[in-house]
Design a protein around this nucleic acid. Structure first.
Lengths: 182, 182
DNA sequence: ACCGTCCTTGACCGTTCGGTCAAGAGATGC
DNA sequence: GCATCTCTTGACCGAACGGTCAAGGACGGT
């Protein structure tokens, strides 16, 4: 499955053939259709596992932190780290986003992640450290910054994830905090 | 070409066949290959025109504004408006981003847009209204917020572009301004 | 030894794809 | 009337695709 994921990331969903996957694994085609009912199911499975893994990483990063602002920060940093270590899976996310077939699956996972952030944002609003605005919009904004910076700087330009994360964190925390503040 | 763009946006690049495009246009296949040398060239052409159009819109929006902060704001608002009016082209951008073949083409256009923003960011830094950080990172962050919010709220949830733009603008301007300030 | 189950093979099928091309329609100049 | 050039047609091609299946190996129970 790792092999298949790498192939999909490299060439895209449609151009990667089942024949190519099985021959790269030195197995027959039958074994593929024994374990998966279709190419689509394989892809969906890979996607699901990747999302699970990312979420696990985020949860681990924030489990010992009570402060909502710090939790958001740690969430950004851990995501950046994961995306860097799993570039091919990140590519898969982008791929899935642009395929009508998979975008609902992807969106479900994304909504879960955003809901996590939104919880902390709400806490931040209650305690007056984040300005009073729709928590969901703010959370998606954070997601947008993280993804874009990861893609452009970590992924395409090979910059250090922690430095890029620094920039993302300061941009987001200020963006969340709003005018005046502190 | 508009028809082809709509088809690509609807079904993706690979699943949209040349046969489908020409039959939808009620012409023969030959006429397609008379004007375009391949399906790939057609797609590239559509992409190029879309990027040009978006940029034109941004330029028009800011041409009568001198203040860099306002220019950034107007850039975000005009982009949001354009993306809303040209949803299928926005989908095409996402699609192109995930195809190895087209992502360089897409990136070139994106870099141009980012360079525009970065110019204003630099001015903002010089005049002390934006904190001293890498203008390019900040610009990409703005791009990330705009795209993510457009996709999620305007595109998927049909919210009003101007309201979403409000949120994007305030998030970005605060994110750019940095701590303390004003 | 024999059977039944689980797993594996790769030739094969129907379909669809991007792209080609011989044939010809229409307009224009002479 | 005829040659010429531009544009258009759709049948056709080889290649590649996702998926099927008859056949058989591996192995445990009896």
């Amino acid at each position: 499955m790792d092999f298949a994921a790498a192939r999909f990331a490299e060439k895209g969903y449609h151009p990667t053939s089942v024949a190519e996957i099985v021959s790269g694994l030195h197995v027959g085609k039958g074994v593929f259709y024994w374990y998966f009912s279709s190419k689509e199911e394989l892809f969906r499975e890979i996607l699901r596992e990747a999302q699970q893994d990312l979420r696990r990483r985020q949860q681990q990063a924030i489990e010992n932190e009570a402060d909502p602002m710090r939790r958001i920060e740690l969430g950004i940093r851990s995501s950046m780290g994961w995306l860097e270590e799993n570039r091919h899976l990140f590519t898969l996310f982008q791929l899935a986003a642009s395929e009508e077939r998979f975008s609902p699956t992807l969106r479900r996972g994304q909504d879960v992640a955003v809901a996590d952030v939104a919880r902390h944002v709400k806490e931040g609003i209650v305690s007056g450290r984040i300005r009073d605005a729709d928590p969901q919009i703010l959370s998606f904004a954070v997601l947008g910054v993280t993804n874009q910076l990861a893609r452009t700087f970590v992924f395409e330009r090979n910059e250090s994830p922690s430095q890029v994360a620094d920039a993302a964190v300061s941009f987001c925390l200020e963006g969340l905090r709003g005018p005046g503040g502190e």
